[in-house]
């Protein structure tokens, strides 16, 4: 006996209210629950949907919803890793060498306004690309996890005046993220977030001091090298987005239209 649209909607809404927020995960669990209920209803024709649903959830809810959050974190890490691996592609390594050499070989003299303008322009294009091409699938776990890499380059323009300050920020961010990962399972979410805010608060004055102190070492070559490096980051980002767009298109062909 097949479940009606209303009954399927009921399962879907129940899962949504149980924090299964991503469409792709929910559609799979809805089908799983619906299949189990259909079998039960076929075997016991006297039973009604709501009773079977309730009894199924009492027995299986914990197992059904287990690991969803862990999986989302794994997926986010995988996407960030793929983005990082993008820098090891042959053409990117070539561009990196070019980024290091060009400022010392050519007199480019970009003004700060041009650098900022180009970055903001590309930033807007990336965001538009994401919202136009992923808007159907942004509610999937992949679509949501991609937001993390979209956000990384948004911070690029902040360091246009002094890219050297990143030498302080990047290792600190890496250490804080690794520490956070190590302790987040052992302590409550609230405490884990509180510690993150504490660390950021602790390092902020040091970061401001380092930024001011290192300004004396910033040269034209460093600024131009950083500009090329930004373009490389945008290139890798677009490449990663296109890979996932292709993946989502083939997986959910016609599903989200």
């Amino acid at each position: 006996m097949n479940l009606s649209k209303e009954e399927l909607q009921f399962i879907d809404t129940y899962l949504k209210n149980s924090d299964v927020i991503y469409t792709d995960i929910r559609l799979e669990l809805t089908d799983h629950v619906a299949s189990a209920i259909e079998v039960e209803l076929a075997e016991n024709s006297d039973e009604i949907f709501y009773k079977v649903f309730k009894s199924y959830m009492v027995q299986n809810k914990k197992s059904l919803l287990k690991n969803i959050e862990v999986e989302q974190v794994k997926l986010r890490d995988k996407i960030i890793k793929r983005f990082g691996k993008g820098f090891l592609a042959k053409e990117v390594l070539f561009l990196l060498v070019l980024a290091l050499l060009t400022p010392s070989l050519l007199e480019l003299n970009f003004s700060e306004d041009i650098l900022m303008g180009v970055n903001l322009g590309i930033g807007v294009i990336v965001l538009l690309y994401y919202f136009i091409f992923f808007h159907k699938t942004k509610k999937t776990s992949i679509g949501a996890a991609l937001m993390f890499i979209i956000l990384i380059p948004i911070y690029i323009p902040f360091y246009i005046k002094n890219p050297i300050s990143l030498l302080f920020l990047i290792p600190v961010m890496v250490i804080v993220t690794l520490l956070h990962k190590k302790i987040e399972k052992k302590i409550s979410k609230m405490l884990s977030r509180g510690l993150m805010v504490f660390f950021i608060g602790l390092f902020s004055p040091l970061f401001i001091w380092f930024t001011k102190w290192s300004e004396q070492f910033v040269t034209e070559n460093i600024l131009e090298g950083y500009f090329f490096f930004q373009l490389i980051i945008w290139y890798v980002l677009f490449k990663t987005l296109m890979t996932y767009k292709k993946e989502l298109d083939s997986k959910y062909k016609g599903v989200f239209s």
Binding site: N2, L3, L8, L29, T30, D31, V70, L75, K78, V255
Partner: peptide
Amino acid sequence: EGALYPALHKLEAEGVLEVEVVRVDNRL
């Protein structure tokens, strides 16, 4: 379910499995 789906998703991420989503009996 708590053991099966993470295992399936892991195999999918590793490129060992591929996914096809189809509409069956009013659902995906």
